[in-house]
Design a protein around this nucleic acid. Structure first.
Lengths: 243, 243
DNA sequence: CGGAATGTTGATATGCCTCAACTAAAGTGG
DNA sequence: CCACTTTAGTTGAGGCATATCAACATTCCG
């Protein structure tokens, strides 16, 4: 059983060079565990957290709440991700974080993380880099949601989720967890649920993916990449992932 | 005439607390000047910059280049902004930066900035915060482009630009520079140029804004805010700006 | 002054949304 | 464990907003 500290160190190593002392510093972080039921909010818009959350298992999503109550999902996070790392330096949450399916989290006090930065600047830079990759993912979402037709949007979303899962060792065979509902996919890509349903069926019929029971199965990666115009460079991983 | 160092310090103070030593450290940064013609690229997708760019005057934009040659603009930057601060920790550019109208830039070597972080961690945290606010702006763009009709999108865009200009002291009377073409507005919001033209006219007819000659004039701020569902909290400024 | 870039306008087409009715699956309590 | 309720997904019909296309007007700039 890997500890949350190891989970974090492993994730940071996907993009950053950490030496023994850095990993040692990470291993000293203490934390509190937190279980999330499906759909439960971890943080709400306007909150002022004093802990940083780390995903240990399951999936969480970030979202904006609109005036009329609708949601706009912004990103999804898996094991090793820090979905609210920004709260280290931005007081108030400008968005919320909720569980997609059940999730196990770990909460690390901000003060501890800042102490770690002082002793080991590389740890700070690695987490900074993590937040910069987040930003790159947001940029890609702008492009995806603004300039591609529904089928390409969806293909791109699946590519990103699958690729990141793969990089984190969460793909088995050719499938990974993805406990999103079709409604949530619509709220992510800015398309109506009816369109989500029909587009999914088209992708299924074309034998590109399978998606049911909260799992995504990729049957034809090359086709999915082509249809989503997916180029993983924006994820800034140290080494390209083999799929 | 304010120096680029002062421009940067002033900007960072919009969201971060810096003491005399921090400002002193910023004032020691040396740099190279760079003029950009309208539409000239500063950096391209794939580049590996070893300097960080600071906008001294004018406006620059970040954009993705799509397979078919179209552009998706991601954000716009004014005096004091660091449009490629991320390059401090992400080697390769996943997007390009170009001038919107003419712009004066200053290029600060990465090594110098990193030295400043070592001596004055608060300077590093302030720039980190700056990149986190960037990310918040990207998130807002996801929501804007994905879940609002054209008129609201455009109103929101104008709100953000005007509000940020105001915070940086770049509004005179009730107008600020905005040298975007209608084509570029379309490439920002993901709407066709014909729609941009018609929507602009609607906003003009409603006496909400004026937009010509590269300047944006806000005639009815409250109406613009209402139509764009604009809430400036995501900009994370220390104090709300009076408009 | 002439040419290119930018913006305007109208006509037409269509992709996606909306709505509604239905089916299937999942969760709940007796 | 089954009946019932709720939630999630599917399907079709229809309308509308926005894209597309094309012609024209205007502004900018050399």
């Amino acid at each position: 059983m890997t500890s949350p500290n190891e989970v974090l160190a492993r994730k940071l190593k996907e993009h950053s060079r950490l030496n023994g002392d850095d990993v040692e510093e990470i291993s000293k972080l203490s934390f509190q565990r937190r279980h999330l039921d499906a759909n439960e909010d971890l943080i709400r818009q306007g909150d002022r957290p004093d802990v940083a959350a780390l995903v240990v298992s399951g999936m969480v999503g970030r979202y904006h709440l609109l005036k009329d109550g609708r949601r706009q999902y912004l990103s999804f996070h898996i094991r090793g991700d820090l979905p609210d790392a920004q709260s280290l330096f931005l007081e108030r949450m400008d968005h919320a974080v909720c569980a997609i399916g059940e999730a196990e989290m770990v909460l690390i006090p901000h003060v501890q993380v800042r102490e770690a930065f002082k002793r080991r600047p590389m740890v700070g830079f690695a987490i900074w880099r993590e937040t910069l990759i987040d930003a790159a993912i947001f940029r890609e979402a702008i492009t995806n949601n603004s300039s591609r037709p529904p089928r390409a949007k969806m293909a791109h979303l699946f590519c990103e989720i699958y690729y990141r899962a793969r990089a984190s060792g969460l793909v088995s065979g050719n499938s990974c967890d993805l406990p999103l509902s079709q409604t949530q996919i619509g709220e992510t890509l800015g398309i109506a649920i009816a369109t989500v349903s029909r587009t999914l069926q088209a992708l299924r019929r074309a034998r590109v993916i399978e998606f049911k029971g909260g799992r995504l199965t990729v049957k034809d990666w090359n086709s999915l990449v082509a249809q989503g115009d997916f180029n993983p460079e924006y994820l800034h991983l140290k080494r390209a992932v083999q799929i």
